[in-house]
Design a protein around this nucleic acid. Structure first.
Lengths: 212, 212
DNA sequence: TGTACATCAGTGAACGCGCGTTCACTGATGTAC
DNA sequence: TGTACATCAGTGAACGCGCGTTCACTGATGTAC
């Protein structure tokens, strides 16, 4: 039987490593994440961290999986209705842009986007979106087939009309949120919130919305 | 009077440096851009490059300005109508994702987003979008004021209805294109082109379109 | 046309930095009898 | 309760790497008279 105390101390250390790692991401992007620097901040030698993570990439992968899970939870906690869901998505991203970039920004050099853990984690976040959205109009046959297959693989078995609306919503939310995060609207002197509201409105009442 | 031959050789060298730099960006992202590595590829010592660019950051800034200009030109060459404009935007991004990321991806650590040269270059690309788009519905007062001020500063003096449609189009195009570039649709087994077509359709006929 | 000078491109050595990772090892903490 | 052993956390030295940038310098190319 493992020692409970030792396990708890260990879990605490893992938490602290991740916290420092996230702080580094926030400060300087993914390129700034450094095992050595984290160790220094924790007052420990560099190699010590290899007791907790087999490599820098493994640490990064853990952070990504955590972030997908966290976003999925945030979406799941949103009140019913598309506006609340959209607001939850935006809030999560604005509160921690460095983590949002980790999920949907540029892939890191040498990082394997096809890692099964990462694909599964990403799917989990999308599943919440699909589960909480109303169906839109019917897609054409080709697209419907692809959407059906995707929904099947993900285990949600959502109908194509719902899947399409989820993907469309995601695309638009990502467009608005990522431009906001990088300061593009701010540098134009335009309030991102007003633009976001207009996009949510269009999603609710546009040709891809649920209502007629 | 300067030597024409020398100037031509120099311009050629600048071109080659930029070409190698772009190849590095394509291969490993902005973090992989290295003065030393470029020099090595060109068969020249590292410090030699400082005859052409005062620093790594200056080289990067030049690449960014070039990319904005190139995108602006590509948009300007598009046939009339929103579908062609949207297709031009997407084509440019797909053909050179590394340059697209340079423009609208995460800012680089230590890089100054408020550099006047960069802001001006970015504005130029947006101006083309504004100039080539039909007006949409009228925005509400607050948004209209901000859009008017922005258009005024940019020298286009577009009306708010046109500016809003341009910004909305940009946001949606960016959402679709950036998710496509990072392989998000591919990993879902969905053809990005079909989704893009649906978005262009919505932009053309949705509540933010020019028509009634 | 020839000569003196200025400009420019490029070199090699050096500075100081930080990185991920491996290795042999010490010491503390837990487990089994 | 005490003792032998196993597990685990952490250390310090080392390896090999690449980076941006500065500096004093050489040699070639251009310019002015």
């Amino acid at each position: 039987m493992a020692s409970i105390v030792r396990d708890r101390v260990r879990a605490q250390m893992v938490r602290e490593i991740k916290d420092r790692a996230l702080a580094q991401l926030a400060a300087g992007g993914a390129a700034a994440l450094s095992i050595s620097a984290i160790a220094k901040e924790l007052g420990v030698s560099g190699p010590a961290l290899y007791r907790y993570f087999p490599s820098r990439d493994a640490l990064l992968a853990d952070l990504i999986v955590d972030a997908y899970g966290d976003l999925a939870e945030a979406l799941d906690r949103a009140a019913p209705g598309l506006p609340a869901l959209a607001a939850a998505y935006r809030s999560w991203a604005l509160a921690q842009p460095h983590r949002y970039r980790l999920l949907y920004g540029a892939p890191l050099p040498g990082y394997d986007a096809h890692d099964q853990r990462l694909v599964t984690a990403a799917q989990r976040a999308m599943n919440v979106l699909v589960a909480r959205i109303e169906p839109g109009p019917e897609p054409d046959d080709r697209l419907a087939g692809q959407l059906r297959a995707w929904a099947g693989r993900s285990g949600t078995d959502a109908d194509p009309a719902t899947a399409l609306r989820a993907v469309t919503a995601w695309s638009r939310l990502h467009g608005a949120v990522s431009l906001e995060i990088e300061g593009n609207y701010a540098s134009m002197g335009i309030d991102p919130e007003l633009l976001f509201a207009a996009e949510v409105e269009a999603l609710s009442n546009g040709p891809l919305s649920s209502g007629p």
